[in-house]
Write a protein that binds this DNA or RNA. Structure first.
Length: 482
RNA sequence: CGGGGCGUGGCGCAGUCCGGUAGCGCGUCCGCUUUGGGAGCGGAAGGUCCCGGGUUCGAAUCCCGGCGCCCCGACCA
C-alpha cells in the first residue's frame, strides 16, 4: 500500500530521505513563511528532552536563566565592528509599529550579545559582581539564503549563554567548561560523537576572540557544527562599556563568553542515527522509550491484551521508563509497528494472547532484533535494553565516523580525492595561511572544521602543510559541512 | 542572487502539448467483516484548478504580468 508512505532510501537521495523522514515521523512541517518551520509535537518533544538535560547541566554549573527581549535597537548591532559585519546582512528589521514608522528601526535578534552587554553594563560595577553566569532559551532570526528543516531555518530555537568574568583566564575556563558540557550532552544523550577544537579565524564567531566548536559527522559524511562556545575577550565589554572596579582598586573591562546550541541538534540526531525506516531516537531523548502494542482476535482477547498493555505501561512508568500503550485506533498492529519505527521509538513490546498465556511479551528493538521477554521484572529488562541501545548507538556512530576519517593523507592528491569522493574528516597539517584555507574550500568545498583538541590529534603532529608543503603550524580537520 | 522543478479536494498526483461536463490514489466519515508486520467490501462528504488581466460562444488548458514553495549552488548555527 501507499508508496506515498515510503521514505526515500538514504543511498538514493540523502536529502530527500531527510525531508521524507521528518514528514513521516511528524517532526516538523513547512510553514506558510519561506524558510520557517512548524515544529510538531513529536519533534518538539525531542527538543524538550534536550532542553531539560542541558538546562540541568547549566544549572549544575551555577548558571541562571533570564530572558532578554526579541527586539534590539539597530544601532546596538553596529557597536562591535566585526559583529555588525557578520550579522547585519542576515537580520530582519522592523521599521513600523502601531501603524507608524519607528524613529529607530528594531532588529529582530540574530543573537543577543548586544542587548545583553548593554544590560551587563548597568549591572556590573565591582569585582564582587563577577562572574555573571547567564543563559536564555529563546528564538532568534537569521535571514539565511537557503534553509533546511532543523538544520538552518529562518527562525530557530536555541539557548544562548552569556557570561562575564574578571579575568581572561576565568573566561577561558568558562568557554572550555561549556564546550565540555556540550560534548558530554552530545555523546551521552544524543549518542552523537563529536570532535572538539578551535575554529580558525575565518570560521570564528563575528566579534569573538576565539571560537570552539563540537563537530559531528553525519551519515552522508558531511560535518555538522553542533555547538559553539566563544571566548569574546573584552570586545563586547569595550563596545558596551562593561567595566568593573578590581579588587586592587583599578578599573577594567570584563572578559566575557557566549555559547549556544539550537534546534539544529534535532537535525543532527536525525542524520546521525536515522535509517531507511525512519528516525532512530536514542533512548535518553525519546518521547516514548517503550510502546506496548496489544494484539487480539476475539473481543475477549482484545479486552485482555488491551488491559494488560495499559497495566504494563503503568508498571514501566512507575519504574521510571517513558512508556505508553498503543490502544486501538483502527490501525492494525502492523501499521502501528511501522508508525512507531518511523517515529524512532527505541523499544516496542508486542502483547498478544499467546504472549499473555506464557506471561511474556515480544520485545522488538528499533535497532534490530526481536525476542520474547518475561513480564516479571519487565521494567529492569527494559531499562537494561535501553541502556544497551544508548551505548550501542554511540559506539556505532563513533565507528562510522572513524571509518570515514582519514589521518595524515600521504599527498595533496589523496587529500583532494578523499574530500571529493565519499568524504569525511581529514586530519592533516596546515601552515595557518587563511589564503590556503580559502583555496582548499574553492577546490574541494571543504572547510577546516576545527583545529582539534589534544585528545583528537594524531599521535604524531604532521610536519608539513598538506597544501603548501611548508612546515605545519597545526593539525587541522577538514570536511565538507552543512 | 544564478540554475532546475512545481502550484489542481486534507496529502500525493493525472489532465495542460491539441480549449468543450474536473479525474485517480491515499486519507477522512458511515456500515459490516477483519486484526501475530501498512485489512477487505459497500456507501458518502470534500475543489476560488496560486493570483490578476487578456483571447474565446466556452479557459485548469492559449497569451501577458505577478506571487509562492521545494531542490541544487554562493552566505550561515
Amino acid at each position: 500500500m501507499a508508496e506515498s508512505k515510503a521514505i526515500t532510501p538514504r543511498a538514493q537521495d540523502f536529502s530527500a530521505w531527510y525531508n521524507d523522514l521528518i514528514q513521516r515521523a511528524e517532526l516538523a512541517d513547512y510553514s506558510p513563511v519561506r524558510g520557517c518551520m512548524v515544529i510538531r509535537p513529536n519533534g518538539y518533544a525531542i527538543w524538550e528532552q534536550m532542553q531539560r538535560a542541558l538546562d540541568d547541566m547549566f544549572k549544575a554549573t551555577g548558571h541562571q536563566n533570564a530572558y532578554f527581549p526579541l527586539f534590539i535597537p539597530q544601532s546596538f548591532l553596529a557597536r562591535e565592528a566585526e559583529h555588525v559585519e557578520g550579522f547585519a546582512p542576515e537580520t530582519a528589521v522592523v521599521t513600523h509599529g502601531g501603524g507608524k514608522e519607528l524613529e529607530e528601526p528594531l532588529v529582530v535578534r540574530p543573537t543577543s550579545e548586544t542587548i545583553i552587554y548593554s544590560m551587563f553594563g548597568k549591572w556590573i560595577q565591582s569585582w564582587r559582581d563577577l562572574p555573571v553566569l547567564m543563559n536564555q532559551w529563546c528564538n532568534v532570526v537569521r535571514w539565511e539564503m537557503r534553509t533546511r528543516l532543523f538544520l538552518r531555518t529562518t527562525e530557530f530555537l536555541w539557548q544562548e549563554g552569556h557570561t562575564a568574568h574578571a579575568t581572561e583566564a576565568d573566561a577561558q575556563a568558562e568557554t572550555l567548561q561549556i564546550l565540555g558540557i556540550y560534548r558530554r550532552f552530545m555523546e551521552e544523550w544524543m549518542a552523537m560523537p563529536v570532535l572538539t577544537g578551535l575554529k580558525t579565524e575565518s570560521e570564528k564567531f563575528a566579534g569573538a576572540l576565539r571560537t570552539y566548536s563540537c563537530e559531528a559527522l553525519m551519515q552522508d559524511n558531511k560535518a555538522l557544527q553542533a555547538g559553539t562556545s566563544h571566548h569574546l575577550g573584552q570586545n563586547f565589554a569595550k563596545a558596551f562599556e562593561v567595566q568593573f572596579q578590581t579588587a586592587e582598586g583599578g578599573l577594567d573591562y570584563v572578559w566575557s563568553t557566549s555559547w549556544g546550541v539550537s534546534t539544529r541538534l534535532v537535525g543532527g540526531l536525525i542524520m546521525t542515527h536515522g535509517d531507511d525506516r525512519g528516525l532512530v531516537c536514542p533512548p535518553r531523548l525519546a518521547q516514548w522509550q517503550a510502546v506496548v502494542v496489544p494484539i487480539w482476535r476475539s473481543d475477549e482477547e482484545k479486552a485482555a491484551t488491551c488491559g494488560a498493555a495499559e497495566r504494563i505501561g503503568a508498571e514501566l512508568r512507575a519504574g521510571g521508563i517513558r512508556a505508553t500503550p498503543d490502544l486501538p485506533e483502527g490501525l492494525k498492529q502492523g501499521a502501528k509497528y511501522l508508525a512507531w519505527e518511523a517515529r524512532g521509538a527505541p523499544l516496542r513490546l508486542e502483547l498478544g494472547p499467546r504472549d499473555l498465556a506464557s506471561n511474556s511479551a515480544m520485545l522488538a528493538r528499533r535497532t534490530g532484533g526481536k525476542e520474547a521477554v518475561q513480564l516479571d521484572g519487565l521494567a529492569d529488562t527494559v531499562r537494561r535494553e535501553l541502556d544497551a541501545m544508548q551505548d550501542g548507538l554511540l559506539a556505532a556512530a563513533r565507528e562510522r565516523r572513524e571509518a570515514h576519517s582519514l589521518r595524515g593523507p600521504k599527498s595533496k592528491d589523496e587529500f583532494i580525492d578523499f574530500l571529493r569522493s565519499d568524504g569525511g574528516f581529514v586530519y592533516a597539517g596546515f601552515c595557518g595561511e587563511p589564503s590556503v584555507e580559502a583555496e582548499i574550500k574553492e577546490l574541494t568545498k571543504a572547510t577546516i572544521r576545527c583545529l582539534p583538541d589534544a585528545e583528537f590529534r594524531s599521535p604524531e603532529k604532521p610536519a608539513t602543510c598538506i597544501w603548501t608543503g611548508k612546515p605545519a603550524a597545526v593539525e587541522a580537520v577538514w570536511a565538507r559541512a552543512y
